[in-house]
Computed example of a mutant assay.
Amino acid sequence: MAFLGLRKWSTPVAKPLWPFMVAGTLTMYLVAKAQDSGVKSAEWRNDPRNPYAAELAKSSLH
């Protein structure tokens, strides 16, 4: 018998959702890598809209 919706044993949450957690982590990693390579590309390196333009110009001098 359930008391206010609580059961004797807890409902598993992480075990059935592990594929979605792994896929989400992998997707976030790949999107971050694509964004980083896009920001550092030659086409956008000297664009004034690039928030990392000053940092890239400083690193390219060394």
Rank of each mutant, 00 (worst) to 15 (best):
W9T: 11
P12I: 01
L6S: 05
Q35Y: 04
L4S: 03
P16I: 00
A54G: 06
D36H: 01
K15D: 10
Y29F: 12
R45P: 05
S37W: 02
K58L: 08
W18M: 02
P51I: 01
V31L: 07
N46P: 00
T11L: 10
V22K: 03
P19A: 04
L17P: 03
V39Q: 06
K40H: 11
A42D: 07
V22D: 01
W44L: 07
H62C: 12
S59L: 12
L17S: 04
F20W: 15
W9C: 14
S10V: 04
L26W: 11
M28Y: 05
K8F: 14
T25A: 15
N50E: 00
R45G: 10
Y29W: 09
L30I: 11
A14N: 10
A53R: 10
S60Y: 07
K40R: 15
A54E: 11
M21K: 13
T11W: 00
P16K: 03
D47G: 06
L6H: 14
A42N: 06
R7S: 15
G5E: 00
D36A: 14
D36F: 01
G5Y: 00
V31D: 07
V39P: 01
T27P: 04
D47T: 07
N46Q: 05
M21L: 13
P12F: 03
Q35N: 13
K8N: 05
S41H: 05
V22L: 13
K33T: 07
M28T: 14
D47H: 12
K33Y: 04
A57W: 03
R45W: 00
E43Q: 13
L30G: 07
Y52L: 13
S41I: 05
L61T: 15
G5L: 01
T11K: 12
S41E: 09
L6E: 06
S37T: 11
L17M: 08
W18T: 06
G5Q: 05
M1N: 08
R7W: 10
S59Q: 15
K8L: 15
S60E: 11
V13L: 06
V22N: 10
L61D: 14
A57V: 12
V39K: 01
L26A: 11
S37A: 15
P12G: 02
Q35H: 10
L26I: 09
K8E: 15
W18C: 00
A57E: 02
K40E: 07
P19H: 03
A54P: 00
T27I: 04
F20V: 15
F3T: 15
H62V: 13
Q35C: 13
A54R: 02
K8Q: 13
T11R: 12
T11Y: 04
K33A: 10
S37H: 05
W18A: 03
K15T: 08
G5W: 00
A42F: 11
K8W: 10
P51Y: 08
G24K: 10
W44F: 06
K33H: 02
M1K: 09
E43Y: 01
D36R: 07
V31Y: 03
A32S: 09
A23S: 04
D47Y: 03
A2K: 02
P48R: 07
T11D: 08
H62K: 10
P19I: 01
Y29V: 14
D47V: 02
A53D: 03
V22A: 14
Y52R: 15
K33R: 08
A23N: 04
Y29D: 14
